[in-house]
Structure formats: structure tokens, C-alpha cells
Nucleic acid binder design. Sequence first.
DNA 1: TCGTCTGGAGAACGTACGTTCTCTAGACGC
DNA 2: GCGTCTAGAGAACGTACGTTCTCCAGACGA
Lengths: 191, 191
Amino acid sequence: MTEEARSRIVDAADALFYARGFGQVGMDAVRDAAGVSLKAIYKQFPSKEDLIIAVLEKRHGMWTSGVEGRVNAIADPVERLIAVYDFLADWFCEADFRGCGFINAFGELGAASPRVAEAVRVHKAGFQAYVARLAEEAGAPASLAPQLAILAEGAQVTAAIAGTSEAAAQARAAAEYLIAGALAAARGLPA
Amino acid sequence: MTEEARSRIVDAADALFYARGFGQVGMDAVRDAAGVSLKAIYKQFPSKEDLIIAVLEKRHGMWTSGVEGRVNAIADPVERLIAVYDFLADWFCEADFRGCGFINAFGELGAASPRVAEAVRVHKAGFQAYVARLAEEAGAPASLAPQLAILAEGAQVTAAIAGTSEAAAQARAAAEYLIAGALAAARGLPA
DNA sequence: TCGTCTGGAGAACGTACGTTCTCTAGACGC
DNA sequence: GCGTCTAGAGAACGTACGTTCTCCAGACGA
């Protein structure tokens, strides 16, 4: 029961934080949205910062399973890399898309909360490591993965601010070209 | 005199907002840092939001002049495009670098303040238009510029969160490859 | 010199919000 | 049946902060 309450709190807080920003959402609003008492929230999360960390952890899990689910539906190693951008394209089209919650969190709280900053760093490092693994499985040199990750980050920022989803396709096109070039060079070099 | 006070206020506020985030800086802190009275601030800026907008406008000017200054030191059209990433590299190495102030502002206030969201949109649209102009002058097809802009945005985010400057060089390398490919295609197509 | 006006310093006000406390009602073991 | 414990609802508390007000000192024109 306490576990279900916890996830109800985290889900409600996540939706509110993502939609409005952390500073614009009070614990009262979380309480109302989650349908629990303030005491119940503070029992699970001693402070708002703890709740924010929990929200980021949940969001990390959702992001990871979302990307990996999309990638794992594909077998071809190169297509698997590119599937990341198709995942982004779908995400950007969602009505409530408002950018990467981690980038937003870092911008708002990165300087004030070392724990938030660290959670964001861990999340982004995890994504970079995942892309690096996909790139390696595709036979690309190590220099490719950071470039692909940068494209993905830039697409998220651009789509959020512009309010359009076209950045996903643009990033995808750039990624395709970079991948093709990296693979051609890799096939050429280890003669 | 009032003009000098205004810029003192904006400069002080910009430094504080950028370093800590908007919500973490009260008007009292701005007053102390600017060395003016609260009344003087509210005379120039009827509300905190107005001050934030003014800070973003100043920051837009500094960014624009910084990038264009770097680019204009170079003649070769392709090198001018690439100079954008060298500008980023220098910026990322600054001790107080904490990401793009506009991306941070959008993450924190984009949902709460339409004026802030619009200022960020205008800023990013201006950068995209500038890159598009540089790309056109280099003879590249229109599809290149958005890709280069996305790389620049992604580099800013990645460098800020990772706390390292390597993203600039990675984005630069990707940009060089994309530019070379786009120019080769452009030379090939219009036979 | 005197009235007026500006601007500074800082108190004050109202509100929002993170956090805690109070009170109550039900559940559960003896 | 009775003490104890938990949990809920919501009040309450303290603080932070955006904004305004008060008071006063100096400048400047008549």
C-alpha cells in the first residue's frame, strides 16, 4: 500500500513538475494531485528535494525503457542507432512535450542543488554510454557516439523551444550521414 | 545617469540569475549586487519579470556580438561556419560557465512566463537564422543549417551538464563532416 | 532661503510555500 | 472493551521574497 502511495505521489509530482517547473509547484499541489495527505508525502520524502530526486529517478527509468524499447524492436545495428531519433520524433509530437525534464531541472536547480545536478549528470552519462554501446555494436569508432548524443540533446532543446518536432528529423538526417561516414572510415582504416 | 544605473542593475542581475537560477535570486540580492536601492530597480523594471526580460535581451546582445565577432575575424566562408564551435569551446572553458542562459530560462520559466518563453524563442530563432546565413554564404543547401544549430545547442547542454568542454570539439568535428558533405553534394547536384 | 522634487535606505506588507503540529477516526493487539 | 498506533485533513508556523511605503537628506529653481 505504501508502495502504491509512493508511486502515486511520484507520478503526480512528475506531471506537475514537468509541466510547470519545480519552483512553480508547491507541495500542496502535489498533495491535491496525488490525493494523499501532506503527512503521507513527507513520510516517503523528507523534503521536496527528496521528492524531486525520486521524480528524476522515475523519469530516468521511463526514458531508458522508452528508448531501449524502441531500439530493441530493431535488429540491424545501424538502424538501431537511428531509432533513437525516431523515438525523439514521437516524443516531440506529444501534446505536453516541454523539453527534456533533466535539462530543465539542471537549468533551474543545477546550481542550487548538488543532488539534482548529480542526478542529471548520471542520467546524461547513462544515455551517452548507451549510445556508445549502440555505436560500438554498429562497428563505428568511439568518436561517433558523442556526436550522436550531442545531436539528440540539441534536438530536444530545439524542439522544446521552437515548439515544433522537426528537429528530430533534422538530427536524424545528420546522424545518418555521420554514421555512414564513420562506418565507411572504419571499414577503410582497419584494412 | 539613469542609463548607467539601468545597466548596472541588468549586469548584476544577469550575473546572479545565470549563476544561481532566477528563482534563487531575490530582488534584495540584485539590489545589493548592483549597489542601488530597491526603488531604483522598480523604477526601471516594474516587476521581476521585466528585469528578467531585460537580462535576456542584454544576454542576447552579448551572445550575438560574441559569436559574430569571432566569425567576422575570419574570411573563408566555411571557416566562418566552423568558428561558431570555436566560440563555444572558449565559452565552455570559462570558470563560471553554466550552460546557455536561455535554455536554463526556458526550463525554469518557459511554462510560467510566456514573455520569457517568447524571448528565448526569439533568441534561438535568431541564432538559427544567423547559421542559415553563414551556411548559405558557404554555398551549402538549406538543410545544413538546422543540423549545425542543433549541434551547437547539444554541445551547450552537454558541456554544461558534464562540466567539461569537450563537447565543443566533438560538435565541431561533426559539423566539419556535415559541412564537407553538404558542400560536396551541392557541387555535385547543380551540374 | 524656501518649497518641491528626486532618490536612497530600509522597514513593512502580503502572499506563497516548505514543513510541522493538532485533532480526530479507525485498526489492531491484549 | 481498551490502549496504542497509524493515517488523514487541514490548520498553523516560519521564512523567503516580490512589492510598496515611510522617512529623510540633498539638489535645484524661484
